[in-house]
Each structure stands twice: as C-alpha cells, then as structure tokens.
Design a protein around this nucleic acid. Structure first.
Lengths: 200, 200
DNA sequence: CGAAACGTGTTGCCTATGCGACACAGAAGA
DNA sequence: TCTTCTGTGTCGCATAGGCAACACGTTTCG
C-alpha cells in the first residue's frame, strides 16, 4: 500500500467516501462477514486495485471509517470535557446527520443482534479513542493511584457513549441531531466532572 | 469539449453517474433554474473542468440524461421494436418501474410548480421519441395525407402521457404501476385507434 | 480426486481527472 | 462610475486511478 502526496486531492476524498459508503450499504444488505472487497468496489464504482492503494482490507476500511468519526467527535469535545466552539458544533451535527443517514449500519453495529466482529471492534475502538483523549487532556491522572482505575473509567465512558448512540438509533422517531448532540455533550461533561475532576 | 478513447472506462461512467445524480438532487433541492455548474460539481465531488469535458452546460447534461433513460427503455423493448399486438401492459409497467427510480426528479419536472424549461424540454423530447416510435411502427402513416397531421397526433399523445404521469406522481398515495399502466394503456390505445388506424 | 470458479494482493503502463491559472461577463455594492 | 464578487469556459501540467495480467489460496462441483 502506498501513500499519497496530497491527501486533500478531490479524487482521494471522493474515492474514500464512495468506498466507505459502499461498505456501509453492503454491510446492511448482506452483512459485514459475507462482504468481499469485490462487492465493495463494484458497488462504489471503484477499481479493486484502487481499494488496495488506500486500505489493507475491509477491516482496515472499517477502522479508518470509525477513526474518522472519532476524530470529529474529539475535535468537538463530545468525548470528555466539553469546550463549545460554534464552528465545530456544526461539524458534529453534520456527523450525526450522516450517521442518521445509515441508521441500519450502526444498528447492526450497536443493536442487540449486532454482528460479532463489528460491535466488538466498534466498542473496542471507542474505548481506545477515549483512552487516548484522556491521556492528552489529563496527563497527570494516569499516575494517580487514588482515583478509579483508568480502564474502568474508559470502559464505562465508551460503553455509555455507544449505548447512548444505540438508544438514539433505536428510537421510533429519533430526535434531531442537534438535540441529541446537546444531550450527549451534557452527558459527557457530567461524566468528566464526576469522575476525573479531583474534588477540592 | 473533447471526446474519450474509451467511453466504457469506469472513471467515465462513474463521473457521469455522479454528475447526473447531483443534477437530480440539486434540481429537487433548489430548482433547475437556480442550479449552477458549480453546485452540481461540488455536490458530485467532481472538478468543474471535468464537467466541461463531458457536457456543454447543465442543459446538455439534462438532455443526455433523458436520452439515456429513453435508450434504456428502448433496450428493454418498451419503445423500440414495438409490437402493437403484443402485451403492451407489461411494457408500460416496465416503463414506470424505470421512472420510479427517480420519483422526486420527475415530480419536479411534471408537477404543477414544475420548472418551465425542464417540463418543456421533457415534453419535447418525449414527443420526438414518440415520433420516432410511430415512424417505425406505422411507416405508411407518414405519407397518408388523409389522416390527421402527424405533429398534432404526437403532440397530443406526448402531452397526454406527460400530464397523466405528472398527475400520477402528484397523488398522495400513487396507485400501483400496474393499475396506472392499465389506465394509461386504455387511454393511449383509444387515442391510437381513433387517430392512427384508418377506418375501413 | 481434478478442475473450474472465485477471492485476494500486487505490478506496469496508460489515461481521465484534479489543480491552478487565465480571460471574460454579469450582478451587487460603495 | 469603479470595484468586488461570483459564475462561465478553457488550458497545460501533475497524478490518482483504471486496466490487464499475474501468482496464489479457497471453495465448489462433476
């Protein structure tokens, strides 16, 4: 797999978007396990060799897709301490609108009958992301023996976030992405305060 | 505007598909008149210069899209190589299954608040297609001075078909393609009989 | 069992497309 | 009026991606 000089090239972004979209649609249609690289590239109208210029395999594609989601969440401060920035709020809302476009896919990942590999990898990545974020934000907390074990915190927070998202998607008529983003920010902020901020 | 060596190149087909899709979505969203080439290319994630490698302007894109639809219908035996005695019902049903692929777009084109240029061009192209069809099917009718003027017939038939289609798409709960095809077949059959079949 | 048939990765060559720039036109605004 | 801004249409150059072929592993079926 080779890298690209200009990751911002329109062709690169378009190819990645098409492949990701095909991954989601294909997963909904026939399941992630049965999905082949050929299926994805055929649906995306992208040559198979091009797929390997960007991703190692379908698992790599999935993880990169999830990572992109987390990056947006972290930039917006949804994960951890909320720092409201008007500009980034719109991006988060856009993200949830995108998620809402493929509720079946995330339902597959988060629902009760979720694909084994998918849901495991999703929660696992979520936890890792939360871990990395808190290492950046609270570097001193890692060496504090008196606080709760970090793993427990991260597992709890990650699981809470996944459950919240799953709950949102399971609703009959999900509320607007704006409202859900607001709730999620409040939730994550409360959790941050109660678990990470040392009481004075 | 330049031509391409290999029109079957996956990149060419993908680009055209994305642009066409963006045209349809953009037309539904903000109307065909207000739609710019920039809007289309931005939505399609295609460079603006690439647009001009394929189309002259948005009108050219629209016409090529309509032509492709008609070509698909002809390949399916719906318009071309018509058999007047055959089972026309199935052919008409196939037609509406094709149209149902882009319901919003045709709603914009044919509905009461339809864009002026769009609906005009659509009716115009439909009329030309009907003209070609009847030239194939009834070659002797073209030279018959005693029948009604052909233009009048075709205009009437095409306009009737478009109006009926627009009415169908405007319904709250459009009836099944089968039922509507039955009605339309009766209508068109009556028109054909009364205007094209010479009385013995 | 053998042999099609399919999926995975990889490579070298060719080309469609992106990018940046340009001239031009019309519209909005000081 | 003179700017400023946006859209149009075109161009040369650089490159991401298509295509065809390859070796290899796995399923499928006769």
């Amino acid at each position: 797999m080779q890298k690209f000089d200009d990751v911002e090239d329109l062709r690169v972004r378009r190819t990645r978007k098409l492949l990701t979209q095909a991954l989601i649609e294909g997963t909904v249609e026939k399941g992630f396990a049965a999905l082949t690289v050929r299926d994805i590239t055929r649906r995306a109208m992208v040559n198979r060799s091009t797929f390997y210029r960007h991703y190692l395999d379908k698992y790599d594609l999935l993880e990169q897709h999830l990572n992109e989601i987390y990056e947006v969440l972290e930039e917006g401060g949804i994960i951890g301490e909320g720092r409201p920035e008007g500009n980034i709020d719109e991006e988060i809302i856009e993200l949830f609108k995108q998620i809402q476009q493929f509720p079946d896919f995330y339902r597959v990942m988060l629902g009760p009958q979720a694909d084994a590999f998918l849901s495991q990898r999703f929660r696992q990545q979520t936890q890792q992301r939360v871990l990395a974020y808190y290492h950046q934000t609270f570097p001193e907390a890692a060496s504090d023996p008196d606080t709760l074990p970090l793993d427990l915190k991260f597992t709890t927070i990650a699981s809470a976030g996944c459950s919240a998202l799953g709950w949102w998607l399971e609703q009959e008529r999900p509320s607007t992405p704006e409202k859900f983003a607001h709730w999620l920010r409040q939730l994550s902020y409360d959790i941050s305060i109660s678990t990470l901020k040392p009481k004075k």
